[in-house]
């Protein structure tokens, strides 16, 4: 893997005021790097802060504290309009809900052209039309669809329109916020295949946020597991699946139902109890080359010792 970091997130925090006294720590000190050209998976259950992380990175929310560096420049520090516009072109987002993510009063052409118009990328009407047709073809839709309204399309088709909208401004980095969880299985595969194809063709980098681990495993090179606003484990996707260290990751993996009846008959689930380990003293440490874990000092040492004996230390 190359070492060209496209995104560096350092100790990112996003706290929301909920009521007078209560503060919700949606994202509570998250750090990770994403390398150019890779797909970085971010998984976790609802409310763990994975979507908030994505939205904070793209500046939909202002971070409470921490640093987000994109191509080496601090995203939350930039102020000039020109810089912001440049940033908006380079980083794009694909959303979860194919029904809510397209403006129902705009035609497909207007939707796809939105970014192009905001940034004034193309002047002539004919060129714009041509670009829209190109983009529609890229995502596997017909050019006749340009004049249609979103409600006429199925969920999968709408999601592809959303992808075309993001691609219109030629981004380098795309945050995909649960792009397939609202879609049917057969359609999920279409969208995932399309995303992989586009990655190869345009050299895109993805941050793929999801709760469906099997799909994340399929598409991602590296995966981070989030729990209660923190990343508990980060590793190459194979390593994470074959050698999960954090008890939460294990319980998550053991809970995914697989489409294999024989396997399901013999499944045993591990149950995660957050009280079983000392979360207050835990720090994010690299226990093995490229395998990061939120753990205490003692646990860290135990892993170091155990590694020589086998790939999976028992707890």
């Amino acid at each position: 893997m190359n070492n060209d970091k496209i995104l560096e997130v350092k100790n990112l925090k996003q706290h929301f005021q909920a009521g007078r006294k209560r503060i919700v720590k949606a994202v509570d000190g998250v750090s990770f790097d994403i390398y150019r050209g890779e797909t970085f998976g971010l998984v976790g259950e609802s409310g763990c802060g994975k979507s908030t992380t994505g939205r904070t990175i793209i500046r939909l929310y202002n971070a409470t504290s921490g640093e987000v560096k994109f191509n080496g420049i601090d995203v939350h520090g930039r102020k000039s309009k020109k810089d912001l516009k440049q940033f908006n072109r380079q980083m794009q987002m694909i959303f979860q809900d194919p029904y809510a993510s397209l403006n129902p009063r705009m035609t497909v052409k207007e939707i796809i052209l939105e970014g192009i118009e905001i940034h004034g990328l193309i002047e002539h009407e004919a060129a714009k039309t041509k670009r829209v047709e190109e983009l529609l073809e890229t995502v596997g839709l017909n050019k006749e669809h340009a004049t249609r309204y979103p409600h006429e399309f199925s969920g999968g088709q709408r999601q592809r329109i959303g992808i075309a909208r993001a691609l219109a401004v030629d981004p380098e980095f795309i945050i995909a916020d649960e792009p397939i969880s609202a879609l049917d299985v057969s359609i999920q595969a279409q969208v995932v295949n399309l995303m992989k194809e586009l990655q190869e063709k345009h050299g895109l980098t993805y941050l793929f946020i999801a709760h469906d681990l099997s799909m994340v495993k399929y598409i991602s090179d590296r995966i981070a597991v989030m729990y209660a606003g923190k990343i508990v484990e980060l590793a190459d996707s194979d390593e994470l699946y074959k050698n999960p260290l954090h008890p939460y990751t294990r319980s998550l993996l053991s809970a995914i139902p697989l489409p294999d009846p024989d396997f399901e008959r013999t499944r045993e689930r591990t149950i995660y109890d957050p009280a079983q380990h000392d979360a207050d003293n835990a720090k994010f440490r690299e226990v093995k080359q490229g395998h990061w874990l939120l753990c205490t000092e003692e646990a860290y040492k135990a892993y170091q010792v155990n590694q020589s004996f086998g790939p999976t230390p028992s707890d």
Binding site: S154, G156, Q157, V185, S186, I187, Q188, A189, Q190, V192, N193, K196, S214, M215, K217, Y218, I219, S237, Y241, P259
Partner: peptide, 18 residues
């Protein structure tokens, strides 16, 4: 169309169309 554990280099078999 569902990924198996060891097929990440292959394309998923998507059902085309709607």
């Amino acid at each position: 169309s569902m990924p198996t554990v060891d097929n990440e280099d292959e394309k998923l078999m998507a059902i085309p169309g709607t």
